[in-house]
C-alpha cells in the first residue's frame, strides 16, 4: 500500500527527514512515536503534499504510484487522508458545504455515483452521531470556534465520510478527554478493514490500548531508529526515548517492518 524508501525532506532548507524507510501493507496499523521535533508531522505533511516541504531524495509509492508527483487534492482523491495535528479554522465555509464538495470531488474521481442531497444529509447525520458531534456542527464554519477536541473529532468525521484507503492521523489523540479518545478510537476501528491501512502518530500508549497496532516505529531526528510490535510502545512509555537516542541501536535500514 505505502512504501517509503530513503526519504529525505527539507523545510526552509533545513533537513528534517534524513533517510526514512517504512512499508505499510493493506490492513495494517502502524504507530509512529518519537520525541518532539523529530519529524513526525513533517512526514505526514510531506505525504499529504504541503508545498513548502521539499523532498531531496528517496521515493514514496502509494499503491504502486509515485505519490510525490501528485498534487495534494489528487492524493486525497487516490485515497490518502491526513488528520491534522492542528486543524485550521475556515470561517464562512460551512462544514456541510465543505464535506459535500469534498465527497463529490472524491466520488467523481473514483467514478462513483454522486449522492443526492437527501442521501448526503443522512450519511452526514449518521457519521456525526458516530463521533458524538451534534448535527449543529455541520452548519457552522469549518472548525470555526470548535474546541480542540471538537476539531479532532471533526477530522475523524471527515475520515468516516470520505472512507480513504490510507489514513494518517497526526496526534489525533492529543488533547482529547477520555470519552473523546474512545470516540476517536471507535471511529478508527469502525473503518478498519483488510484493504485499509492506518498510520497513527502518537505520544501516548492510551490510544494504542483501543487500537492495537501491528507495528510500532520510533522516529528520532528524521530516521526510524527502531521498529517492533505493539509491546515496543509499552517499553517506550516506561523508558522514554533517551536509550534510543544514544545511537546504540542498529540503523533503521536494517530493520524491516
Amino acid at each position: 500500500m505505502l512504501k517509503i524508501a530513503n526519504l529525505r525532506a527539507t523545510v526552509d532548507d533545513k533537513e528534517i527527514l534524513k533517510g526514512l524507510n517504512i512499508e505499510v501493507k493493506p490492513g495494517e496499523v502502524h504507530a509512529i512515536m518519537g520525541p518532539n521535533g523529530s519529524g513526525k508531522s513533517t512526514l505526514s505533511n510531506v505525504l499529504a503534499g504541503r508545498d513548502n516541504y521539499h523532498t531531496t531524495d528517496g521515493t514514496v509509492l502509494f499503491e504502486g504510484k509515485d505519490l510525490l508527483t501528485l498534487a495534494p487534492e489528487e492524493r486525497a482523491r487516490e485515497g490518502v487522508f491526513l488528520a491534522f495535528q492542528y486543524p485550521v479554522e475556515i470561517p464562512g465555509v460551512s462544514n456541510l458545504e465543505f464535506l459535500k464538495t469534498s465527497l463529490e470531488c472524491l466520488h467523481t474521481h473514483q467514478n462513483k455515483p454522486l449522492l443526492s442531497a437527501v442521501e448526503f444529509m443522512k450519511l452526514a447525520r449518521e457519521k456525526c452521531k458516530l463521533v458524538d458531534l451534534d448535527t449543529d456542527f455541520l452548519k457552522r464554519g469549518v472548525n470555526e470556534g470548535f474546541s480542540g477536541g471538537e476539531k479532532k473529532r471533526n477530522d475523524i468525521l471527515q475520515m468516516l465520510m470520505l472512507e480513504p484507503t490510507l489514513c494518517l492521523l497526526d496526534e489525533t489523540d492529543s488533547g482529547l478527554d477520555i470519552d473523546a479518545l474512545k470516540v476517536v478510537a471507535d471511529g478508527i476501528n469502525a473503518l478498519r478493514s483488510p484493504d485499509r491501512s492506518f498510520v497513527l502518530i502518537t505520544h501516548y500508549q492510551r490510544l494504542l490500548d483501543y487500537v492495537q497496532p501491528d507495528f510500532v516505529h520510533v522516529l528520532v531526528d528524521g530516521q526510524i531508529v527502531k521498529s517492533g510490535g505493539s509491546e515496543l510502545a509499552l517499553e517506550l512509555e516506561e523508558k522514554g526515548y533517551s536509550w534510543l537516542e544514544s545511537g546504540t541501536e542498529q540503523p533503521a535500514n536494517s530493520l524491516k517492518a
Binding site: 499529504a48 503534499g49 504541503r50 508545498d51 498534487a71 495534494p72 487534492e73 492524493r75 486525497a76 482523491r77 487522508f81 491526513l82 491534522f84 486543524p87 485550521v88 475556515i90 470561517p91 464562512g92 465555509v93 458545504e97 465543505f98 464538495t101 469534498s102 470531488c105 472524491l106 474521481h109 464554519g141 469549518v142 471527515q158 470520505l162
Partner: peptide, 29 residues
C-alpha cells in the same frame, strides 16, 4: 490563507474550487 487552502486541497478539493469556496466565505459574512 494558504493553510486553509491546503486543508481544503487535502480533502480532494482542487485549488481552483478551494479558492472559490474561500472567496465566497469572505463575502458570506
Amino acid at each position: 490563507d494558504s493553510e486553509a487552502l491546503f486543508y481544503l486541497q487535502s480533502r480532494g478539493i482542487s485549488k481552483v474550487e478551494a479558492k472559490r469556496l474561500l472567496s465566497m466565505a469572505f463575502i458570506a459574512e
